[in-house]
Design a protein around this nucleic acid. Structure first.
Lengths: 240, 240
DNA sequence: CCCATTTTGTTCTCACGTTCACAAACTCCT
DNA sequence: AGGAGTTTGTGAACGTGAGAACAAAATGGG
């Protein structure tokens, strides 16, 4: 733990960069699937939908994995990013709340292909318990502790209705889960040291609606570069 | 709507603020449901999971809707935010790609309750066309233009596999859709003036995995106030 | 072998977003 | 009425992120 050696010099990767690494990873996978073995920062930036200067800066936080005058080896860079994110290892995940969204998540192939293994589906509704979803039998929510300990689960996904979200989160935290992905349309409070990320479908639509309304009202005579399109990103995680 | 001269002074709301307005809106709705008629910025900030100073600053971009020494009238503020976002009006939406995720989206009640009306479900797969999902019959993708013009649709949702996403987006843009919510794990490029927001389920998990790996490696002796919960945003516009 | 070309890694500057801190404005109590 | 107590709205300090620009390192041609 305390053997932080030489490579540990600038081991602080900005949150905004962390959020983009998975995008680069996917872009590299797409390039590799096309048989491309080497790419420039310009190529990769285009594939990832970002500015090439930003891409190079992001990669520089990981180390110097490129070759000047040449570019990046696709497979090598892909491995380095995957290792940095942690998706070279296997992450057991539990999903709580098997409604419409839980169904979709359980069936989502993108999880498994990126190192996430759904080890259990849980629901508090006894009508749902026992059903087979995505080849897995739904178990009662009270089995959470047993499952988490058995598989050493660190990541939990909440796909319950809003009212249940805080209770589920509390239970998860009490049992030892330290990362939560929350799809319920509710704010969940967690103690320090626990990460929560929130995905809210209707919020995204509302943000689009805001800009749409703006366009319709002709409120932007000339975007003046600061408009809605372009590479305008909203930034990442808040603080505890 | 036309005579907005005086209040029109500083009508530029920062993108980060726009992304939080829907959160405030939901928090206010929750307070109203609890019968609370007035709240302080501290109360609302707690309910929304943000810092009260940030909340006040965000609200100040909309106008002065509070009363010093008292706080905010819940219903009044709720209406003002809803109006600013644009969810007081009705937004017709089409969903393209009725797989697992499309199913879940079609059934998601949070859309309708916030002013979004799903006017059509579309799919290119003829095995899916004709099925009834969420009380709506799935129509062939080629009906897109007819539907968009008939209902004056401005917002499209892409829930297709990654390979189809760019084609669907191109078609949407050609027909006149100017806001796209993309659930496909792919970067879609759109011309200037079109907004794209991306929601990627596996990217969120990968970000959690990164921090989880950090914790496990004891890389963060003391997080220094940098615990990573809070509201996670995916980024905004596509490039030209 | 040397030089032109390519492309990375990094530095610098600017813009944006967050947080603090406090004056202004309002209520309530005496 | 006046002062004590609240709470908003905002100006200013601070930190983070984005993009331009360039030096350093590699290749390839003559």
């Amino acid at each position: 733990m305390t053997t932080r050696s030489s490579t540990d010099a600038a081991r602080v990767i900005p949150e905004a960069t962390v959020a983009r690494l998975p995008v680069y990873l996917r872009a590299l996978t797409a390039l590799a699937d096309d048989g491309i073995r080497t790419c420039s920062s310009e190529d990769l930036a285009t594939a990832a939908g970002v500015n090439s200067a930003k891409l190079r800066k992001d990669l520089s936080y990981l180390g110097s994995y490129g070759t000047r005058g040449v570019g990046y080896d696709v497979d090598y860079l892909r491995y380095q990013i995957a290792r940095e994110i942690g998706v070279t290892q296997d992450w057991p995940v539990v999903i709580v709340g098997i409604g419409n969204l839980g169904h979709a998540l359980a069936n989502y192939s993108g999880f498994r292909s990126r190192g996430f293994r759904v080890v259990a589906l849980l629901d508090a509704n006894e009508l749902v318990v026992g059903q087979t979803v995505a080849g897995v039998v739904v178990r009662p929510f009270d089995d959470l502790e047993e499952i988490v300990h058995e598989h050493d689960v660190a990541i939990g996904v909440i796909a319950t209705p809003a009212v249940a979200a805080q209770d589920v989160a509390d239970r998860m935290v009490a049992i030892g889960i330290t990362s939560i992905l929350n799809f319920a349309p509710a704010v969940v409070a967690v103690p320090e040291g626990v990460d929560v990320r929130k995905v809210d479908l209707s919020i995204e639509l509302q943000i689009l609606a805001y800009h749409e309304q703006r366009k319709a009202n002709g409120h932007e005579p000339i975007p003046a570069g600061a408009a809605v399109d372009g590479t305008a990103d909203a930034a990442g995680g808040g603080a505890a």
